[in-house]
Design a protein around this nucleic acid. Structure first.
Lengths: 347, 347
DNA sequence: TTGTACGCGTTATCAT
DNA sequence: ATGATAACGCGTACAA
């Protein structure tokens, strides 16, 4: 819990901001009417409006929204909590598109989206404090992990919220997601249909529903042919995980002829290692990814993958929060959006 | 200016949050002392502390930070304003690393970083309102453009701020940057030193200092050999700009043998087009980029480029804001950090 | 060590 | 149409 060191410097060198009080004094109009002018309310005389507007310009008044929030009990801001190691914020294409969708909806509804990035434990506590502090009317939480303190804080606080991908152990909070299991199973079957017999997986982020479920789908698709020895796992969805994972898989079974990578970035890393090892793609080894990110088209050959409706995920999550704000009660279950297989040349 | 539709529903279905008042009532201790316990101040008896803590747990009290901010005139939050079309937030590697550096410094100082993403005009007005509203104690502004309303709002408001890359026309606000002109000139000279005679540039973002200055450096390096016909320009630092730009350059001069791309993403687009056109890199055409992003290593052959100290940019900007918050007066000039040429195989 | 009372800047209510 | 005045929830001199 942060400490505050003593009194604030009232004699700050910066000039004090003008307040409604000042505007009232200068214009000779009461604070109440000034407030009415500010908010464009009816029942204000032309005379008063003009006097107030002049005074506002004269004293350089700008509204203190924090004070307004205190009395209206609203902030007109919604938090978007991104729970990722920072270096990945840029690598994960879905996050960008989810941001896009969320902000589009919130902006349209005239809400300010504030993005809170969360990495260390220290960040985590501070963000929880921020969420509790009345700075925001609601929250959208991305990629929460199992045992997430933020998820707990949100649940306990009863603040309108929506999760994009929900941690496996949280109480039933509303969430938006995709059916990772089904999508993973589908693309794995498609990979198998190209005639592969030794198919492995580079899994990732098993502490999140996305990672966990993609592995489950892979396992289901393989059925009896599943060989746990051909599955490796890394914490983060990133290029280096794919490179490391592919090296390990090649070591475990040089005859491997198919790979399901848990993300496109991972697939890209794996492909580079395969090429270095002299394997042709897709002739010797077929590989598929997940996300349909910019990686997919930068790969050579172009990557077959699962397209995530990232923009729609963001939009729906934002809409869920707005609905709750409008008084609807939170949906208790999840809402899963459809994915689509994009078949290219890598398998 | 946002309108607020009538009165708030005081009879909201959600239960009212507990306040210090409630804690005081339940514990039988005065509000003043409760506040002291909350803030860990000295001169509180063991008896009082225990009673208060029990009451807090009992009524489920959480502090309303917005109210505290009103009285302390502080929010302990700092805005990071990102002025980019959303789809680029993920493509620009520097932004991610600047975020990283900024958050590290702010987090260490126990400030909450709130990222405000800015795309449309509507966003712009709302963010300005947010900055003025007392939600944040300071602001760091990324990639502001010429005539930026946010920059103006910040300047007018006198809020502690630091720019990362400053728009060419703003009043002298403190900023952190790199010497784009010198860096561009250096790498262009290096490219020329490989014996190229027909060297073009794919410029970008000329309304920002970075884009403008990189073109200036290129021009300076070429001197008399500068041919305006070999310069094309696109608004955004992105892959497609590079692809389009390279096609155009090849059309204008099929014998072009050197290209300076204003960013790595642009270079990547250009390289793919060159390969499609049957040009060998670096034998037929040498190409260099700017940023040393993940693109640079994903290119084949690996891209020669300029490394930006993105993390350091973020850290220094954050530190500048913290310094101003601590009472130091804002430095009136800019602070330029060193860049480094990373020479690889593309030229 | 503790309680009282005032102020932060705004909106909302109720007279007028 | 407008002006007092009471909240909003908290911190903090000042008094006790």
């Amino acid at each position: 819990m942060p400490r505050y060191s003593g009194a604030m410097p009232r004699d700050s060198s910066r000039p004090r901001r003008a307040t409604i009080h000042d505007v009232a004094a200068v214009s000779g109009i009461s604070r109440g009417t000034v407030s009415r002018v500010l908010n464009g309310e009816p029942y204000v005389s032309e005379h008063a409006r003009i006097a107030v507007e002049q005074a506002i310009a004269q004293v350089g008044y700008v509204r203190n929204t924090a004070a307004r929030n205190l009395v209206t009990q609203r902030s007109r801001a919604i938090a978007l909590v991104v729970h990722e190691p920072h270096s990945l914020v840029l690598e994960d294409p879905n996050i960008g598109n989810i941001l896009l969708g969320t902000n589009a909806v919130l902006s349209e509804a005239d809400y300010q989206m504030v993005t809170l990035i969360l990495d260390s434990q220290r960040d985590s506590d501070r963000v929880a404090e921020y969420l509790r502090g009345g700075f925001v009317d609601g929250a959208i939480i991305l990629s929460a992990r199992a045992g997430d303190p933020i998820a707990l804080a949100v649940a306990q606080l009863g603040i309108p919220a929506s999760f994009v991908g929900h941690p496996t152990d949280t109480p039933d909070l509303p969430y938006i997601g995709i059916n990772n299991t089904a999508a993973a199973e589908q693309i794995t079957r498609r990979l198998l249909a190209t005639g592969r017999t030794r198919v492995g997986m580079i899994a990732s982020a098993l502490d999140r529903d996305s990672g966990h479920d993609r592995l489950a789908g892979f396992t289901a698709a393989l059925g009896d042919a599943f060989d746990p020895n051909l599955v490796v796992s890394y914490p983060l969805y990133q290029y280096s995980s794919g490179a490391d994972g592919m090296r390990e898989l090649l070591r475990r079974d040089p005859n491997i002829d198919g790979v399901f990578a848990a993300s496109d970035a991972i697939a890209a890393g794996a492909m580079d290692v395969l090429k270095q090892a002299g394997r042709r793609i897709p002739e010797d080894v077929g590989i598929v990814g997940f996300d349909d990110s910019t990686w997919a088209l930068r790969c050579f050959p172009a990557l077959s993958t699962v397209r995530q409706p990232a923009d729609a995920l963001g939009r729906r999550a934002a809409q869920q929060v707005l609905d709750q704000l409008a008084g609807e009660k939170a949906p208790s279950g999840g809402l899963l959006l459809d994915t689509e297989i994009v078949w290219r040349d890598s398998a």
